[in-house]
Computed example of a mutant assay.
Amino acid sequence: MAHDLNGKRVAILASDGFEQSELQEPKRLLESWGATVTVVAPGDAGKIRGWKEKDWGDSVTVDQPLSGASADNYDALVLPGGVINPDTLRTQAPALAFITAFASAGKPVAAICHAPWLLVETGLAKGRKVTSWPSLKSDLSNAGGQWTDQEVVVDNGVITSRKPDDIPAFSDAVAKALAA
């Protein structure tokens, strides 16, 4: 699964309550393959705090406030899950506009676990085959997505995965999309 992503730039959009492994492990893997990964978050806090299993986890440095971020500066977008993180982001118009800008530009948008809620809010689930944490099945289906229980699903620029166990396949799919 080694990839050459030198020169590729990836944004990870997150807020407090992101699932720690779903931000940190894709970031680590993409960077190990040569990509430059930037953590983007709303507000002006210098850090956002993760969620690890049943409690608060580690903080991660925010590299770029969302207010100054542009999809033009990146080749792909990764959306980590956690329940709190996407539930917060889906109520924020600037976050939804940032996600939509990637899709409009034909750039990969990758969402894992609960992050496909953001695909519901942006309309990106409609007409696509998707996967997610099982509790989102009805939400995605009601939004016009075709939900399936698979490790990773790639459909027309949108990459989805179910859970932390799927991170290797999820990260590999993001890398393949970047290399395409």
Rank of each mutant, 00 (worst) to 15 (best):
P164S: 05
T61Q: 11
R162S: 13
N73P: 00
S70T: 12
A103C: 01
L178T: 15
P108Y: 01
T88N: 13
S59V: 06
P134T: 02
S21N: 10
I159R: 04
K27I: 02
D87L: 01
H3C: 08
K47G: 01
K47V: 05
W33V: 11
L77V: 08
P65C: 10
A45Y: 03
D172T: 15
I112H: 03
I167Y: 03
E53C: 03
N85V: 04
I99L: 11
G68Y: 04
P26W: 15
W33D: 05
N6Q: 13
A173W: 04
D166F: 07
N6K: 14
D155H: 04
S15E: 13
G46W: 06
G123S: 09
R162F: 10
G7M: 05
L29V: 13
L119D: 01
A111W: 10
L118K: 02
G7F: 06
A71D: 05
N142L: 02
Q146F: 03
S141Q: 14
A111S: 07
G7K: 13
A97K: 05
S70W: 05
P164D: 04
D44Y: 05
F98A: 03
G17K: 02
G50L: 04
K137R: 15
L23G: 11
W117D: 10
F98N: 03
P42R: 00
D75Q: 07
S67K: 15
D4S: 08
F18S: 03
E22Q: 09
G68L: 13
D165I: 14
A71N: 07
A76M: 13
V40M: 09
P94K: 04
A45H: 08
V40Y: 11
G106E: 12
I167V: 14
D149N: 15
V152M: 06
P42I: 01
L29P: 12
G46C: 10
A180N: 14
I12E: 05
A169K: 08
T148M: 15
D4Q: 06
G7V: 05
G123A: 11
R28K: 10
H114W: 10
L140N: 00
P26V: 15
W117S: 12
N142Y: 00
H3Q: 06
G34R: 11
D63C: 13
S15Q: 08
E121C: 00
S104M: 09
